[in-house]
Amino acid sequence: MSINSLKITIVVLLVSFAGLRMVSGQSALDLRINEVLVENNSNYVDDFGEHSPWIEIFNSAYNSVDIGGLYLTDDLSNPTKYRIARGQQITLIPPRSYLVFWANNQPSHGIRHLNFVLQEGKTIALYDANGRTLIDSVTIPYSMQPDITYGRKVDGGDVWVNLAKSTPGANNDTEFHPLAADKFLEVDPSGSGMAFVAMTVVFTALAILFVFFKNLSRVLKMDMSKQRIARTLAKARLGRDTEGAVDKPETEEEFNVSGEVNAAIAMTLYLYSAELHDAENTVLTINKVSRTYSPWSSKIYGLRKSPN
């Protein structure tokens, strides 16, 4: 491998790696701590009928992500405080779905029951399976009200607020948002707006292609020998004297040799080469073929006489 190709390979690998770091991998890194409830008096009950504090994890990816093997903690100095059991069906979070953990310090109640209790002022963190990579964390503010959850305003978003409705295992954003299609119907009942916007985009997309390919042939610097042939042909066609003529810059039309012209040239060359043969003298020689008679070669003597 030459030095240059080695450099190129390294650059490509670095760019790819940077891309991997920047773009979410649709993996455990897409999990988010989405909503927490510290003081549960009359809120959601666990599978033992108890009102326990809870933490909701949201899978922001568009594929299922297994949270098994990851760590939840309320102590950043101890990232591996609670290891979520792996190999369980329940730990596989479907796309854009949720899993609720009970922070009641009762791990014997099941894998969704943590070995710590949620407290105000504490930082809750989710660590990757290596126990070092921090995936997400949130610091619970002081003065949390009973049964009022603290969560992201929009699932997976950056803004944390006290939510008007607690939504364990459901979308935090409970306000009504009309679908894009409904908005179109409301704002653009005739469809003319859609036609205008969409046709602009279609034209833009294809106009970009047009501009690109309009200039591509020039950019590629097409085979110069072909261009030379094209120039000669164009000049010949225009009846110019090629000898001593001043070379003017050729127009695009002269560069562009059509397939038909190429085919005609190829056919001419083929016919010319097929017709081509050695020069011959033009003397026509006529030899007289003499047939001398011999009874030895006559078939008639080899046949029997027919019976009378």
Binding site: A195, A198, F203, L206, A207, F210, V211
Partner: peptide, 12 residues
């Protein structure tokens, strides 16, 4: 390439 634009117009 200018023929590309006809392909866009027909999407009306």
């Amino acid at each position: 390439p200018k023929l590309i634009l006809i392909g866009a117009a027909a999407q009306f």
